[in-house]
């Protein structure tokens, strides 16, 4: 009960809090109880499972990189400048967070697809996006980008502009301020954003299956493989689900690690 005294939380709050925690933990426990431990290792090391896991890790890493390349400048613009329509822009940028991924997939199809908005331009450039690994990375980046922007913009605002102003008055040029002051200051937030983006990309399903298709080694990421395996081999689906849960737990651990060094 030291918890109650320390934080001043009314005791009754603990009941819904415990229920909420059980609501999250129980399904994971249920999942673990369904794992066929005898065949677990052979199920998760089958050719199709390994292809899916490897593809998932590669594409998630690529989309995390894109999230850093585009998300960091976006967060900087949103946090450090003011312009008309800024709040509208922020809402739009965050839209993929609340959009059903399938809707994102359909939207991407009408943008990058053969008959899409940019379809002909892409065709002229000799690129093929539909049904390619590139399409998977695009889908993942689309859904993961807001995590980077939200996380970093929050950190930028909390960090404040004091040091940047001082650096500027001492004669540092904007790029130097960004490189030497701002980015080192918000590095933990940036790392947390990158890890969250990676996690979101790893779990991406709806936009990928709608936009990129599903082919082993090319577009069939781990979530798609799980969804497909469920049709014929539920044991394999459960085993792979557990792998994804473990990866997610590791990712959360990483975020907590970077957060605690920030404090």
């Amino acid at each position: 009960m030291s918890l109650t005294r320390q934080s001043g939380v009314p005791r009754w709050v603990l009941v819904p809090a415990a229920l909420g925690a059980a609501f999250v933990v129980l399904p994971l426990v249920a999942l673990a109880t369904r794992v066929e431990w005898g065949s677990f290792f052979s199920l998760i090391t089958s050719d199709s499972s390994r292809a899916a896991l490897w593809l998932s890790l590669r594409t998630s890493a690529a989309s995390t990189l894109l999230c850093v390349v585009f998300g960091v400048p976006m967060a900087l613009v949103l946090a450090r400048t003011t312009f008309r329509g800024q709040s509208l822009l922020r809402s739009i940028v965050l839209l993929p967070l609340v959009l059903p991924p399938v809707v994102g997939g359909i939207a991407l199809l009408y943008t990058f697809g053969r008959k899409g908005l940019l379809g002909e331009t892409i065709d002229v450039l000799g690129l093929q996006i539909a049904f390619s690994t590139t399409a998977v990375v695009i889908a993942q980046t689309f859904v993961a980008l807001p995590f980077m922007v939200v996380s970093l913009e929050g950190t930028l605002r909390t960090a404040g502009e004091r040091y940047e102003v001082v650096a500027a008055t001492l004669g540092a040029r904007p790029t130097t301020v960004l490189r030497r002051v701002t980015l080192p200051l918000v590095l933990p937030g940036l790392a947390a954003g990158a890890v969250l983006s990676f996690a979101r990309a790893l779990g991406e399903f709806g936009a990928t299956i709608t936009f990129a298709g599903s082919l082993e080694g090319v577009t069939r990421t781990l979530p798609l493989e799980i969804y497909l395996q469920r049709e014929t081999d539920p044991d394999a689906a459960v085993a792979l689900s557990l792998v994804l849960v473990v990866v997610a737990v590791l990712v959360i651990g990483l975020v907590r690690g970077t957060r605690s060094t920030a404090l």
Binding site: L109, G113, A130, F131, I209, G213, S214, L215, E216, T219
Partner: peptide, 16 residues
């Protein structure tokens, strides 16, 4: 180029 989850997914990719 893709092995879809259901027949409606195949149809969708052709219609689009």
């Amino acid at each position: 180029v893709s092995e879809e989850q259901s027949v409606t997914d195949v149809l969708g990719k052709v219609i689009s």
